[in-house]
Design a protein around this nucleic acid. Structure first.
Length: 644
RNA sequence: GGGCGCGUAGCUCAGCUGGAUAGAGCACCGGCCUUCUAAGCCGGUGGUCGCAGGUUCGAGUCCUGCCGCGCCUACCA
């Protein structure tokens, strides 16, 4: 409601300023610091003061006198040194909100969001959770704003990390493919690989020469997709992907398609991109120097430096392709620039019936419309910005400037471990690490908190609380509620930080259910629902019983007016969070909305209100809060428990 | 050395494209459960927004320099 009102005001004021002063300005509106200043503030006079070289206050006074009547706006006044404060017509505002129902317009084009992208060689950890939750929430925000979004989870099933686990199974543990297959079928195969990967990495440290050679050989056969090692890699990667999908499904995170690196290679996406890159001289072959025998991209293409040391190897001297190389081909496909497409096979059917497809190199006859987006968001942590720059430079070097501009690295800072959490996990820190404010999670070292362990711990926590509060409810229902609360806590925790803030993960903070947390928002929503549920049968048809006059009467109360305003800010919040690219803003809004409702809840007795007209209004307001809270939670991907 | 990011209350963090008296949560102190769920509410303590300059009507926000911290700067991703 507030959003549509504001956009009308913005365009009307802009038009007036243009006619009156011949100046085109981006009109901005603000929320006044104090509620008694009115509902909407215009700092336009300050902007105009620069252009007109006149005092802001004089301009503001002039504008107040001359601005045409604006719908829903009752009065204008000059305040401070040149603010124009607007007071809204409360009865109009209430009635419009009641009639409501304007929907986000469908946006043109297709947005591709790539997130999760966990190497399929070990269990997911808390860093991966941040990626997936951030990506998933951003997707929900985009969709809420009417965008057509496709979610891709890229599977690097032919990379070095998978090769390392294959080396571990085959050479270090001497396991046959059949044996590994048995492990893979057992629960928690991702945990088994977590340990094996850490062990293999530490063997590398001790026996560099021999094992580096084994790694290279293994990688070669995996890339070629032939031989026993390649088969072993498939067994490992497929089973781990299944584990990751399961973990993410616990958080309500699903995907549309899994493009896999093996198909990038086997369907010669890379070969095609490679030819193009060579043809356009985007990459060069090195005949000497430290990169002798490699195909490299010059540093000047993606960095401000032309230092040769910065050149990025795209094809290694042994002929294998780096991740970046394959990613350039993948990025081209995302924009539909490759002139090639994958084949697809059904990979998994979600409990709700949604189908997930994976790329395949075998023709299936099925046609799917994946890829070919107009805008691409790559949710990847900030440590990889260098690689992302190389990929974008690749597009640019191939003359795909527009696509390069629409390739957005949706970056975020890492999740590290707080010193206290390291102690709790019995992690012995090097002297160097002890001095740091936090310790980086490392899959190679096996250092970190596994996603499923954290989720289990959160559920356990919530379960204890639910059990003590509702001993009479049957245990299945209690577990269901505890799970929803735990997941809500986790999603909120990962979202409340802005993207470029490092999260020093701390168990005590993550396990907290009080204050600015997911459970706080859920609690407020459960309370609102409870009131409405108690009234159930006597719930009025608001449109029939709430007149313009009753709105005028009830909203004359300053407090109720402020609550009504607070409850109608959701569209504005979505719009702003999207413009800032900050899911954390959305989380914060949900928290503030919950805070507002909790205040209302404590200040007003809805059910026992004696004045019937006021009672109906209070019920309506409760329902308004409820619907907006539920909507916000839905965008945050947080599911409601039946009770708390 | 170069690139990116960060530095705001005891702790963890917000502060949208510069705007009115710098905000939350946690912790701490004091109140509120026979009233729609106390995972809650109310009140209080707590700040030279790293430092120094600059830009302007106005700077936590923009610019420059310095200090401190982190990440990246692989033929790993």
């Amino acid at each position: 409601m507030l959003q549509s009102l504001e956009s009308t005001i913005i365009s009307e004021v802009a038009a007036h300023v243009h006619i009156r002063y011949g100046i085109t300005l981006p009109v901005v509106v603000e929320q006044p610091k104090q509620s008694n200043f009115g509902e909407i503030a215009l700092p336009i006079a300050f902007q105009l003061a620069k252009e007109l070289k006149r005092a802001p206050k004089a301009i503001a006074t002039e504008l107040v006198a001359e601005l045409p009547a604006l719908p829903g706006v009752l009065s204008l006044e000059v305040a401070g040194s040149g603010y124009i404060n607007m007071r809204l017509d409360r009865a109009y505002y209430g009635t419009e909100t009641l009639m409501g129902g304007h929907k986000a317009a469908t946006q043109p084009g297709k947005i591709i969001v790539e997130h999760t992208n966990i190497n399929p060689n070990k269990a997911a950890h808390i860093g991966h959770l941040r990626n997936a939750i951030l990506g998933d929430t951003f997707v929900r925000m985009l969709r809420a704003a009417g965008n057509n979004v496709e979610v891709q989870n890229y599977i690097d099933n032919t990379g070095v990390q998978v090769a390392d686990v294959v080396v571990g199974f085959h050479y270090l543990e001497k396991k046959s493919t059949a044996e590994v297959r048995t492990f893979a079928a057992a629960p928690r195969f991702d945990y088994l690989c977590w340990d094996l990967y850490a062990r293999t990495s530490s063997y590398y440290g001790d026996h560099k020469e021999a094992l580096v050679e084994l790694r290279a050989q293994t990688l070669h056969s995996i890339e070629a997709g032939e031989g026993e090692l390649a088969e072993l890699a498939t067994v490992v990667a497929d089973a781990i992907v299944a584990c990751h999908l399961k973990t993410m499904l616990r958080l309500g995170i699903v995907y549309d398609v899994l493009p896999r690196e093996s198909e990038i290679l086997h369907l010669e996406f890379w070969a095609q991109a490679f030819e193009l890159l060579k043809e356009r001289k985007a990459i060069e072959f090195e005949n000497e120097g430290k990169n002798k025998g490699c195909w490299v991209m010059r540093a000047e293409a993606f960095a401000s430096s032309d230092d040769e040391d910065m050149d990025k190897v795209i094809v290694r001297s042994n002929g294998t392709v780096t991740y970046v190389g394959k990613d350039i081909a993948y990025q081209m496909w995302k924009f539909g620039l490759l002139g090639k497409d994958f084949f697809y096979k059904l990979w998994y059917t979600y409990p709700d019936g949604k189908q997930l497809f994976a790329s395949s190199d075998i023709p299936t006859g099925e046609i799917h419309q994946f890829g070919a987006g107009t805008k691409v968001f790559n949710v990847i942590d900030s440590r990889q910005s260098y690689l992302q720059d190389v990929v974008v430079a690749g597009l640019r070097a191939l003359d795909f400037g527009k696509q390069a501009d629409n390739s957005i690295h949706f970056s975020y800072e890492m999740v590290a471990l707080s010193p206290r959490t390291c102690v709790a996990l019995n992690i012995t820190l090097s002297e160097e690490d002890q001095k740091k404010p936090y310790v980086e999670v490392s899959g190679r070292k096996g250092l970190g908190v596994k996603a499923d362990d954290l989720i289990d711990k959160l559920i356990e926590n919530a379960q204890r609380e639910v059990n003590s509060r509702h001993p009479d409810v049957d245990s299945a229902a209690r577990t269901k509620a505890a799970t929803a609360i735990a997941i809500g806590a986790l999603r909120y925790f990962m979202l409340k930080y802005t993207r470029n803030s490092v999260i020093a993960f701390d168990f005590q903070e993550a396990l907290s259910f009080e204050g600015e947390t997911g459970p706080y928002v859920l609690y407020a929503t459960v309370r609102a629902r409870k009131i409405l549920k108690k009234l159930d049968a006597e719930l009025p048809d608001f449109k029939a019983v709430l007149s313009r006059e009753s709105f005028a009467k009830q909203l004359a109360d300053e407090e109720l007016w402020q609550y009504t305003l607070a409850a109608t800010r959701a569209d504005l919040a979505i719009e702003k969070a999207l413009a800032a690219g900050e899911p954390s803003h959305m989380a914060r809004f949900a928290f503030q909305l919950a805070q507002s409702f909790n205040n209302f809840y404590h200040g007003y007795q809805v059910i026992s209100e004696q004045d019937e007209e006021k009672r109906i209004f209070l019920i309506w307001l409760t329902d308004l809060f409820r619907s907006q809270l539920e909507r916000s939670l839905d965008i945050l991907g947080i599911e409601m428990p039946e009770f708390m």
